[in-house]
Simulated assay, not measured.
Amino acid sequence: DLTVEENLNFFATIFGTTLKKNLHLIEEIYVQIEPFRKRRAGKLSGGMKQKLALCCALIHEPKVLFLDEPTTGVDAVSRAEFWEMLKRLQKRGITILVSTPYMDEAARCERVALIQNGNILQIDTPENVTRSYGKPLFSVKGKDTYRLLLDLRGQPFTERVEPFGEYLHLTTFAGIKMEEIKGFLHKKGHLEAEVSETQATIEDVFLDLM
């Protein structure tokens, strides 16, 4: 198990360069892990491991960077920092191809490919992907989310209903009005349920295409 410094020197050597020569390429990221340069990589936090991996990948100034689920298992703050770093790298002219299970991260990209079981379901900009969702979509919130979910599933007007945080995203068949949904929920005892039209997310589109 190599230290942070040993890992960087190892990858630099593989690509015929040195850490000293190309430090300027990774300096912005390296300053965050430099205090741990003598620590073994296996002892780093998830966020620090990802920053080290990014430094190792950038040490030879690549034209294209491939990242396979780089933020899986990383805390929310480190995830946000990591994506800010990727944006800055993109501005330096590096093409970045990222795989991610997080749809909010996919929305940060210039183009998105939705893939299931090795098949590409759709490729477009995030804006066009969400715009392609041509079905009525409602955001529903109530005190008892689980019972709300069960009551909405199986109803004649429901095409699909999925949890989205503290809300449910309800896709209905064409022609269903919001008042009909509210009336149904009122009869089921969800007297304080909130229903509103909402914009589709990439996750809505992905679930619809599956």
Rank of each mutant, 00 (worst) to 15 (best):
G46D: 02
A200G: 06
A80T: 06
K38F: 11
T198K: 12
E197Q: 14
K143I: 08
N9G: 13
E6V: 07
T3F: 10
V205D: 01
A200Q: 05
A12N: 03
M48E: 13
F184V: 05
L86N: 00
S99K: 12
L25W: 06
N119S: 14
Q155S: 07
I96L: 14
F184Y: 15
V98S: 08
F15V: 01
P163N: 05
E110I: 04
K135V: 03
L148E: 00
F173W: 09
E105M: 09
D151N: 12
L44Y: 07
E6H: 08
H24F: 14
Q50M: 09
D144G: 02
I176S: 03
G46R: 01
K20I: 11
N117Y: 10
D75S: 11
K141G: 00
H60E: 04
I115F: 09
E6T: 07
L152A: 02
A12L: 10
G183E: 04
P156F: 07
F10I: 05
Q199L: 13
A113G: 14
A106K: 02
D151G: 00
P35M: 15
K20E: 15
Y133H: 09
R39C: 02
L114V: 09
F10G: 06
L152R: 01
V140Q: 00
L2Y: 15
L185N: 00
D1S: 15
V31N: 03
W83V: 04
A12I: 07
P70K: 06
T71E: 01
L148Q: 00
V77T: 07
Q199G: 04
K141V: 12
H24V: 11
F11H: 13
L86P: 00
T171I: 10
K20Y: 04
L152N: 00
Q155K: 15
V112L: 13
A106V: 09
E194I: 15
F206I: 10
T95H: 07
L152S: 01
A57P: 03
E110V: 06
P35I: 13
A106C: 13
P136H: 04
N119E: 13
P62Y: 06
E127K: 14
P70L: 11
Y102G: 03
R160K: 14
I33T: 01
N7K: 05
A174L: 14
D104R: 11
Y30H: 13
D1I: 13
C109Q: 03
K141E: 10
D104G: 10
K49S: 05
L209N: 04
A80R: 15
D75Q: 08
A53R: 02
T145C: 05
